[in-house]
Design a binder for these strands. Structure first.
Lengths: 299, 299
DNA sequence: ACCTGAACACCGTTCAAGT
DNA sequence: ACCTGAACACCGTTCAAGT
């Protein structure tokens, strides 16, 4: 209806993957660099770096580029993969609140402005970091025709959840960008493929995908935030939980409102906060699968 | 296990509602003010202010406090409710990226530092804004014993979703804070109450709550971001969708990966982006309810 | 081709001071 | 009791300049 002429702005940037700077530029170096489009930016397992509050991190990478020998034709100090990898490490270690172009540049032993040679904006950089961590998601063997779709769905859900918990900064970005980088797409394709094996009619598949993975997204988001809070406070999850409950009980009116919730917590059983969460997650996933089976019967 | 002595920091602030500045301070004015603890901060329906891109907003409130008559004992320019209400309006109109203490202060006709008389930090302020919008959620009539829990659950889910879409800035905050303000708690209580009427065994209720409302959270988050993008671009949702698809098709490798997804979109049916989303949401909610019924039978 | 320094227009927050 | 001005330590990004 509305003509394009009266649109107040030009159509917006949609994604690094569509309109950003090219991943690599033509360059005259003799080492065959890895950086072709879609390089998954170092899929190291990233062994829960959130658990250590970033010790000697501040001077780690900086040394490498500290002494630029004058004279010889030097290779560039940076490339997109290195920028992306270090971004992920920094985001994991210090959280998104402390992540800045200047902080990242310092970590790379370079000034902030150098980064703009490789990315257009901070948003583009975050989109790259986002796709990089999606490379960590374990995708089930999709060619196996005999496998149970329930197992495959559970595997994807568990893997997605642990991604969100390992990298709490990821969750807001998933909402913000289109998630069309190569690793994000590999994940989405796997989800759709598995859903295709449920026996659900095509018109319901997208709804079922939403049900399962928006649930995992929400669950993992809240869980990740809580875990991060605990790490920052230097408390275990149970300690933090007790601390928060203690604070609540000091406020009589708030306390009353929480008695219901606490009864329910008793009923849930389990010793630790983690155990209870585990139970809830498993139950919810079983509920979804039962729901898919029921909807399948209805056509 | 870990003794409290070696904890590196003092226990952290948990919430405005527990440790922040008191909502009102003792003051010597003769008008009986409303601001006792738990005031719901103006539950005006906020008629989807996201749809108008903030026209004369910049000078709206500022005029009110512009001419402070010297002499007479003046009432304070600010109070918590007014700060909260204007924060919500500003966040709706301009998005969280542009929201700052300085911007808010300007809107209130005051300097940024005045705000710190009423809140400790920007985080506290956002926590207040968050609880204020939770006051918009329609809670079903819980005393009605004859009502179907399915209808009540759907009502809560629909209302929660529309909250997240009307206020896209809310979603990250829900992950960030404990959500123990009065309106947040009213919502949680309602959710638990309805879940109590499903016939689900107590140990499964929390899992079922997670399933349904983390799903809605994820769904509403993504939807809200998309709607916001469209508003900012000055495009309808369909126009934006076509624009993004157009961009994708210019990238041959990306295009291939999307052909699956587009087939599925055809299968979903529906004319507009909104219609398809509506279908998916309804289907997912039906799936959840079917899942609850199935889990109920298993004990 | 790749990187830097200086500058612009912002942030949240503290602190001492005003009325 | 309530509000301000100046200042601190930051931001993302642009632009002209260096090698």
């Amino acid at each position: 209806m509305a003509s394009e002429a009266d649109s107040p702005k030009r159509p917006p940037r949609t994604s690094v993957w569509l309109e950003g700077k090219p991943a690599t530029r033509p360059r005259r170096t003799d080492r065959g660099e890895r950086g072709e489009r879609g390089g998954l930016a170092d899929p190291t397992p990233t062994p829960t770096s959130a658990s250590t509050p970033a010790p000697a991190l501040t001077t780690g990478e900086a040394a490498k580029g500290a002494t630029p020998k004058a004279g010889a034709e030097q290779p560039p100090l940076l490339d997109r993969d290195r920028i992306t990898t270090v971004s992920v490490r920094l985001l994991d270690a210090e959280g998104s609140a402390k992540f800045s172009m200047r902080r990242l540049a310092a970590e790379l032993g370079v000034t902030a402005m150098s980064l703009y040679w490789y990315v257009d904006t901070k948003d583009d950089l975050l989109e790259l970091a986002l796709d990089a961590v999606f490379g960590e998601v374990r995708v089930p063997e999709l060619t196996d025709e005999t496998a149970d779709w329930r197992d495959q769905l559970r595997e994807l859900a568990v893997s997605y959840r642990s991604l969100l918990v390992r990298h709490p900064w990821v969750s807001p970005l998933i909402g913000k960008y289109l998630n069309i980088g190569p690793s994000s797409r590999a994940f989405s394709s796997a989800v759709l493929a598995v859903m295709g094996r449920t026996g659900l009619a095509p018109h319901g598949r997208m709804g079922a995908v939403s049900a399962v993975f928006q649930f995992v997204y929400g669950f993992g988001t809240i869980e990740g935030h809580f875990v991060q809070r605990c790490v920052e406070a230097g408390l275990t999850q149970d300690e933090y939980h007790r601390h928060a409950m203690g604070s609540i009980h000091e406020q009589p009116d708030v306390k009353r409102a929480f008695e219901n919730a606490e009864e329910l917590m008793e009923a849930r059983g389990g010793e630790t906060v983690e155990e209870m969460r585990e139970r809830d997650f498993t139950f919810a996933l079983d509920l979804m699968i039962a729901g898919i089976e029921a909807m399948r019967e209805r056509g």
